[in-house]
Design a protein around this nucleic acid. Sequence first.
DNA 1: TCAATATATTAGAATGATTCTAATATACTC
DNA 2: GAGTATATTAGAATCATTCTAATATATTGA
Lengths: 138, 138
Amino acid sequence: MNNNSVFIEKLRFVGLRPTKQRIRICEELFNRKETFHFTINELKELLLKKKNQKISQATVYNTVKAFKKKGYLKEISINSEKNYFDTNTSNHHHFFNESTNELIDLDDKNIDKIKIKKTLPGKKIKSIEVLIKIANNN
Amino acid sequence: MNNNSVFIEKLRFVGLRPTKQRIRICEELFNRKETFHFTINELKELLLKKKNQKISQATVYNTVKAFKKKGYLKEISINSEKNYFDTNTSNHHHFFNESTNELIDLDDKNIDKIKIKKTLPGKKIKSIEVLIKIANNN
DNA sequence: TCAATATATTAGAATGATTCTAATATACTC
DNA sequence: GAGTATATTAGAATCATTCTAATATATTGA
């Protein structure tokens, strides 16, 4: 596993010690070509399933939250039932397929710049996010 | 309370029997000039505070969910900590002030029509929602 | 390399939001 | 107004998340 050194650097960079559990989590999250959307539960199950090595939920929660805090993961709120995280931390938007509960990234470039005509004196804009809910035709 | 007949009609319309607890909830939700954004907890506390008549949380949950299901309330997901509801069920967007946890409506007209350049064959769009996170300048 | 110590991991308990349950009360029908 | 269907309720159950404090591991500096 040569990637480990990348993960160790990444962990160090965000101020986490590179333990084997955290490296395992990094593999699961960042060793992918595609963006990864997941809930904590899905992540826990993947970790267990793939290597049959249990990582306590406290560690999963702590590590995911640390990555989120430092900007290596993004949180996506869609409804009160599920809380998603996204390994794509760039500025982008989402489709959410209500028929399948699937999240799909939509690049910033695929939506015209959003112009807001209402002004809010004394406030600064931190982020603008578009969520498009879709469903299967049938 | 002449409004009661309006609430009774509303309740009947969505298939709920007009009990005094539900009418109380309607007063709290719909007897307002302004849009009302609330969490279940805030609503429970308001109900208790204003008339000192307790309504069980099961009734609050059931009634709010019934209104949501029938489109008299909208659910707004901002983060995993709080789950908001909105009495404004029209097509609109939101500012969320992260400094104060305040939700502010942004009329559809205040944002140019959103053009999506990515096509998703076999899917239909159910809603497009923009969430703008803001913070106080200081 | 090793000991000392700082930090991480863990199982399980605690918490908080939401849902369920089944006993009691109320609204509706005739 | 009686009988039946439905609602309300307190409290229990459940589920996600956070906390705790005992044990294990990583790091540092000799």
